[in-house]
């Protein structure tokens, strides 16, 4: 899952980036509003972590621009101002949640998970699809109730495909979801991860669409999928 972090303070920014990376999110960290707006136009993110006091474009302005083009991206606001009026203003400008600095890292990560979950239209913390169950908080995968050992990248590919079951994601889209800018991407890595996943789960769980990309095979007992078909 790719997260955009807009925070001008180096100490706090590096801390948040490290915390998110530990949870295997790929994090793009930018330190000013203008660069943030550019990145939001170019890439698809699962979450925006936004400091309200940014140089060049302030946080609320970015939020308003994002919402004015009907981008439903979940946004978590970080604010140094803790008055009720400030929080109301942030939420009314289109934020989904806020944290007042300083905050507890576990609470921060829990809110990140909750926002991503909501962004994918789920209320349940576990991702289920047929025999597969994914626990994003614990980074665990279960196949028919049995724990399956997955690498960080394999988990991320599976996570991205399960976010919208049935939707076809290209190799580039998948790569964008699991790598941040500063990471090298080898040309055949996505194929390698899909290959490993098919070996660890079943071969037909991930469907190849030639020239288009990959999707998760439909499962007939999945009410979510039926609804989306």
């Amino acid at each position: 899952m790719r997260v955009l972090l807009l925070e001008d303070d180096a100490l706090l920014g590096s801390g948040i980036q490290a915390a998110l990376q530990e949870e295997d999110y790929s994090v793009d960290w930018l330190r000013d509003g203008a660069a943030g707006l550019a990145a939001l136009r170019q890439h698809h993110y699962g979450l925006l972590v936004l400091d309200l006091g940014l140089p060049r474009h302030d946080g609320l302005e970015i939020l308003q621009r994002l919402r004015s083009r009907r981008d439903p991206l979940p946004v978590l606001i970080l604010t140094a101002r803790d008055t009720v009026a400030e929080r109301v203003r942030g939420l009314d400008s289109g934020a989904d949640d806020y944290l007042v600095k300083p905050f507890d890292v576990d609470e921060f990560l829990a809110r990140v998970r909750a926002l991503i979950r909501r962004g994918e239209g789920r209320a349940e913390p576990l991702l289920r699809h047929g025999p597969l169950t994914l626990d994003p908080a614990a980074h665990q995968a279960f196949w028919q109730g049995q724990a399956v050992a997955l690498s960080v990248r394999e988990f991320a590919v599976l996570r991205a495909l399960l976010a919208h079951p049935g939707r076809v994601l290209s190799k580039e889209q998948l790569a964008e979801q699991i790598y941040s800018w500063d990471e090298e991407i080898e040309s055949n890595t996505i194929e390698v991860y899909v290959h490993h996943l098919r070996r660890k789960l079943t071969a037909d769980f991930i469907v190849t669409h030639r020239g288009l990309g990959y999707s998760i095979a439909p499962q007939h007992d999945d009410p979510l999928l039926e609804a989306s078909l």
């Binding site: 303070d9 180096a10 100490l11 706090l12 801390g15 140094a80 300083p102 905050f103 890292v105 921060f108």
Partner: peptide, 10 residues
């Protein structure tokens, strides 16, 4: 507040 938040998270 911001440096305090940074300190705490690290």
């Amino acid at each position: 507040r911001t440096p305090l938040a940074g300190l705490r998270i690290h």
